[in-house]
């Protein structure tokens, strides 16, 4: 059975390979469940029935989907053993109940917290390496490597654990999920959220002025003032308009400043 679970874990990497606007990850889910359903359903008709059951709508966060997959797999196992017919209708119900909240947790933890934090840590390293008098300028290749390995160390571990934790969960004790210490993760993330951007900002101010050459010119207070104005404005623009206007806005401002000779 461990072999089947490992196979399922590898297959979850392809969950979104056939993402479509009608039923989203449905074929991906089927692809993950296929070896498991083949193992538990030896009767051809029942296997077909089970496969068809999972062609319906399915969409959640690709990492957190592992938890749903394993709960469904446990339910299918019960159904395959026979006796209670009521459960068949509940499989899809469980699926639709779990996908929303897990997607929200996944989006905000992995894509709203973990990925930006890992990116900021690698940017922090980049700024140290890029300092004008840095002795380590040749080690730039470390930056993407650090980002990828830090992020994936956490991500793959969680994804893998979610599949194998499935042994503990079935429909009856989904409530156990709430015992997982998400709050702890959140508090750690929150601490990093405050400290890391500020550290990166100060480091950047220290290392670069308005272009590296102006660091030595001694106009530090003016530079800090300019940078804080840009920072405050960009938070505002991000909030109101989003990424692309922010990007073009900064460039346009720079060109205007250059024409005005500032």
């Amino acid at each position: 059975m461990i072999k089947i679970y490992s196979k399922m874990f590898l297959r979850t990497l392809f969950l979104q390979a056939l993402w479509n606007y009608e039923r989203m990850q449905n074929i991906g889910l089927l692809f993950v469940l296929k070896p498991f359903l083949y193992k538990i359903y030896l009767n051809e008709d029942k296997r077909k029935e089970a496969l068809l059951r999972h062609t319906g709508f399915f969409n959640t966060h690709p990492y957190m989907s592992n938890m749903i997959i394993i709960v469904i797999a446990n339910m299918e196992k019960e159904i395959a053993k026979g006796n209670c017919s009521e459960k068949v209708s509940e499989v899809n119900k469980i699926k639709s109940v779990m996908e929303g909240p897990l997607a929200a947790i996944g989006d905000s933890f992995f894509w709203g917290t973990l990925r930006p934090l890992m990116a900021l840590i690698s940017i922090f390293i980049l700024i140290i390496l890029k300092a004008p008098d840095s002795r380590f300028a040749a080690y730039g290749v470390l930056v993407p490597v650090v980002f990828i390995s830090l992020y994936n160390a956490v991500h793959i571990l969680i994804r893998y654990r979610l599949i194998f934790m499935g042994f503990l969960f079935d429909k009856k004790n989904i409530a156990n999920l709430s015992k997982l210490d998400f709050m702890f993760l959140w508090k750690m993330g929150r601490l990093g959220k405050v400290i890391i951007p500020i550290t990166v900002l100060f480091l950047y101010l220290k290392v670069f002025g308005f272009g590296p050459e102006s660091v030595s010119s001694g106009a530090n207070i003016q530079i800090i003032f300019k940078y804080s104005a840009v920072l405050a404005l960009s938070v505002l623009v991000s909030k109101k308009f989003g990424s692309v206007p922010l990007f073009y806005g900064v460039i346009l401002t720079c060109i205007i400043m250059s024409y005005l000779g500032m």
Partner: peptide, 23 residues
Amino acid sequence: KAWYLLPIAGLGMVIYNLTNVKP
């Protein structure tokens, strides 16, 4: 100028996003 100013604008974006995405 933008080459050195955009990382600051980017940090503004990061700060805005980190303070607004909540589980």
